[in-house]
Amino acid sequence: MGNEYFSMTDIVKTYHVGDEDQMVLKHVNLTLEEGEFLSILGPSGSGKSTMMNIIGCLDSPTSGDYVLRGRHVGRLDQHELAQIRCHEIGFIFQQFQLLPRLDAIRNVELPLIYAGMGKKERMRRAEEMLHRVGLSDRMHHYPNQLSGGQQQRVAIARALAANPTLLLADEPTGALDQATGKQVMELFHELNEEGRTVIMITHDLGIARHARRVVNILDGVLSEGVSAYD
């Protein structure tokens, strides 16, 4: 605790829509410490997805400085960005994004292929991860044979597989019913308590409150706390 995980300084992201420039992130400053559990709360169109893409090194800011574990992301090339996505960040998406033609274990194995791990080691690790999320009995089921909650747990196992330092979840409960959503949140808590940094992006205040720290984003402006909702 106490070590800086990343810092964002004066981040601006502008999209060109037609002839107009649309500023989606307006001079955002955010610092995150290792081991934190942060929620980024905002309604749709507020810029929270853009935040996630920039944090996850899937997109680069128009201006501003983003330093992730001591590295200036803006100065990294394609290869280095891929390495960060591979080893540092575990993505979890609202629509799970499992590959339908692969069974659970092979979905979980996927990031390990890109991490360059050998086949035996990959299978062992993928099994371990599925066991961790409580799906030991569903290893060879295909996504369409699994419930939404199970699919999201496979996705979480996949995000965990390469042992990333940060879990980055985009509306992880958005496609789940309340009870299942709650189970997934409990899993997040456990993972956070194990020492993993977790960032969750959501529009749901109830879900956001699971995190120890909540920041609020509205029209591209980031502010600490949930004031806008109170």
Partner: peptide, 16 residues
């Protein structure tokens, strides 16, 4: 397209 995006998010390099 989605699959490609996902693979990239999981750490695939363009070359791969």
């Amino acid at each position: 397209t989605t699959e490609i995006g996902l693979r990239k998010a999981l750490g695939a390099e363009p070359g791969q």
